[in-house]
Amino acid sequence: MPTPSRWMIKASLIYLFAGFLMGAFILVSKAYPGLSPAWTLLPLHIEVSIFGWIIQLTMGTAYWILPRYLESGSRGNPLKAKIMVALLNTGILVNSASYLDIVPSSATLVGRSLEVGAVILFIALHWNRAVSYNT
């Protein structure tokens, strides 16, 4: 498994646990209203569970498992892949900090832009790897 995939999959597991813990806290607060401040975690729960867990795991696994280039046997530029990992995770962390009021709410614009950058790099890295060997 290549390094960027291992980074992404391990990060996604951390986000999975964080997302499920937040979800558990929110769910318990439905039964015990004294814990209702847990609801402030809802946007963070969604960000971490969707972008941090599901999307990141999918991207990391795709980088590992899609066909490599026939001539070089590589998965494309590894630096681009590492930048993709950095952009996605910085984006998630910036958005998370914004939802926790650590940074202004407008910071989500920066966070989402970083995530868009990661997706553009993801597409650039994988477009030519989605091929048929029959052609």
Partner: peptide, 21 residues
Amino acid sequence: AITQAGAALTYIIEIWPRIQS
């Protein structure tokens, strides 16, 4: 809530050591 969070933890225990070069 506890069992679902527990499931996340046991999954991580299973899969973390298998993420290898």
